[in-house]
Design a protein around this nucleic acid. Structure first.
Length: 480
RNA sequence: GGUCCGUUGGUGAAGCGGUUUAACACACUGCCCUUUCACGGCAGCAUUCAUGGGUUCAAAUCCCAUACGGAUCACCA
């Protein structure tokens, strides 16, 4: 019988979801579902100094929005709970002590000050700092005495100091490390909490995680985890280390570089499908040349052996392109939901009807790549005066452009019933009157009315601008 | 500093020993469509895969150095 595939996403509850983290979640989800397995959500809150209120809900919200529904987790339960590490303290303590009785770990009473000293010494000699195993030599009596004395202690794992550790990673292949570089790592902190290093291994084993999917910053610490598995005699999981997500300057993605948080993207009117689709392409590529996928399609085609080793650059332009695909396919009323709030925030819409606003959104559907972008792109509808840039001014030097405007202005003035049809008629009358058509007809009007050479459908634009504004803007021709 | 990982065009990224005069996409340029704009379609855009050696009949693909970039060395995760 084949073991069931179980993967996990194990974030710290910081109340902030970086796209790099989300990408790990997506890959973990895809691996699980591709093999018809389970996707588990586990909260790694072993650092008490970094607790954030409501962070668990936040993580669930993000997963739900993206369609990464956990089969098990702190809110929806499961047979391997609890799924929050701070609720599993007894378990870690038990296993840490078991390791001590197995002589694979030991109590360490070294003070911060002593550690600081050897650290300084190591620095001075320019050698890497490694704990010196000072407390390994303590006798049982000494240990008992210190404990009854109430001295604070941690539990450290005994690491081999010779030989080589080798493991296989799906992405990076054969990895080998010298054991003498491994430190006697701390398993249980003096506050009774486990370290990530320990909790992670214990939980992955207890929760029967078959595939560990995480960032490649863990590549070098994986041998330590393997020694833990060996010490307990546990079966090791399959490792899939993901290439780092970096910025254009090859630096690790940071908040500052904008748009690195999923919620920021979401609030800016990016669609979760679009973001998930784009993120799935960060460090992974399908066998075909397609780039647009639904989650279901991704589940079908996702193959972890096609994950790349080199860092994946987070490219907002490409994200925009992917997201624009989804924007174009949206139902208008859905698009309205993610654009109008931004319009309301940026502009005074009190004198506009719902029809007007909806119409505006509609003509920009093919022009924006995320919801909030509608604000910058529609400012010509809300500002009083428009300024022509050099390209526009150059165009207006062409023959007959002024004639077109003067004629068009006249026809616009004569419209008594402001409809798109009548606006089209005015354009056609201008065409006949001046004797120009195509670009030489439309472009001068577009420029004078919108201040741009690019924009949505012209009759609609004029209609939404309103007769008075259009007449005023066309009048600007007299001063040119 | 030790250890580990990476390096293909303006950008992302396929390719993993011969079918490659290096896919595809973003961006850019040109054409077509559209009486304009956008969408869409088509075409152009690396004689070359960080550099230097080596292995081979054959290398972007394997090996070794060098350079550059990054990660990691915590009672953080």
């Amino acid at each position: 019988m084949v073991k069931k595939v179980r993967t996990r996403f194990a974030p710290s509850p910081t109340g902030y979801m970086h796209v790099g983290n989300l990408r790990s979640a997506i890959f973990a989800y895809l691996v699980a579902k591709h093999y018809d397995g389970d996707f588990i959500l586990r909260i790694e809150d072993t650092d008490q100094t970094r607790q954030v209120e409501g962070a668990v809900d936040f993580i669930y919200d993000t997963c739900n929005l993206c369609g990464l529904i956990p089969d098990e987790g702190p809110l929806n339960g499961g047979n391997y709970g609890p799924y929050t590490q701070s609720e599993r303290l007894e378990t870690y303590k038990k296993y840490a002590e078991q390791l001590v009785s197995l002589d694979k770990a030991y109590y360490c009473f070294c003070s911060e000050e002593r550690l600081e000293e050897i650290r300084k010494l190591a620095d001075l000699n320019k050698v890497p700092f490694l704990y010196d195993g000072h407390c390994k030599k303590l006798t049982q009596e000494e240990i008992n005495a210190k404990i009854t004395n109430g001295e604070k202690y941690v539990i450290r794992q005994k690491m081999p100091n010779s030989g080589v550790s080798i493991y296989h990673d799906i992405v990076y292949g054969e990895m080998s490390f010298e054991n003498k570089l491994l430190e006697d790592q701390i398993l249980l902190k003096s506050d009774g909490f486990p370290t990530y290093n320990f909790a992670n291994v214990v939980d992955d084993h207890l929760m029967e995680i078959s595939h560990v999917i995480r960032g490649n910053e863990y590549l070098t610490s994986t041998p330590k985890y393997n020694h833990l598995y060996d010490a307990f005699g546990w079966e090791k999981p399959v490792y899939i280390h993901l290439p780092m997500v970096v910025d254009f300057d090859m630096k690790k993605l940071s908040k500052r570089h904008g748009a690195a948080s999923f919620m920021d993207l979401y609030e800016s009117g990016y669609l979760p499908e679009g973001v998930v689709n784009y993120l799935s392409l960060l460090g992974w590529s399908p066998e075909t040349t397609d780039e647009i996928f639904t989650l279901e399609e991704l589940i079908k085609i996702f193959n972890p052996t096609r994950i790349n080793k080199s860092p994946a650059v987070y490219d907002v332009k490409k994200l925009n392109w992917v997201n624009a695909h989804y924007i174009k396919k949206m139902e208008l009323n859905e698009l309205i939901k993610i654009t109008v709030p931004h319009l309301k925030e940026a502009y005074d819409l009190s004198d506009k009807t719902d029809n007007w606003v909806n119409h505006l959104v509609k003509i920009y559907q093919n022009h924006i790549s995320y919801g909030k972008e509608i604000v910058e792109v529609t400012d010509l509808f809300f500002k009083k005066d428009i300024l022509l840039d050099n390209e526009c001014k150059e165009f207006m030097k062409e023959e007959k452009t002024k004639e077109v405007i003067i004629s068009f202005s006249k026809h616009i003035n004569q419209i008594s019933d402001w409809t798109i049809d009548n606006i089209i008629s005015a354009i056609n009358s201008t065409k006949d009157g001046v004797g120009v058509k195509g670009k030489m007809l439309y472009m001068p009007i577009r420029i004078m009315v919108s201040g741009q050479m690019h924009g949505p459908e012209l009759p609609d634009t004029i209609y939404l601008l309103g007769q008075e504004t259009v007449i005023n803007r066309l009048d600007g021709i007299s001063s040119m």
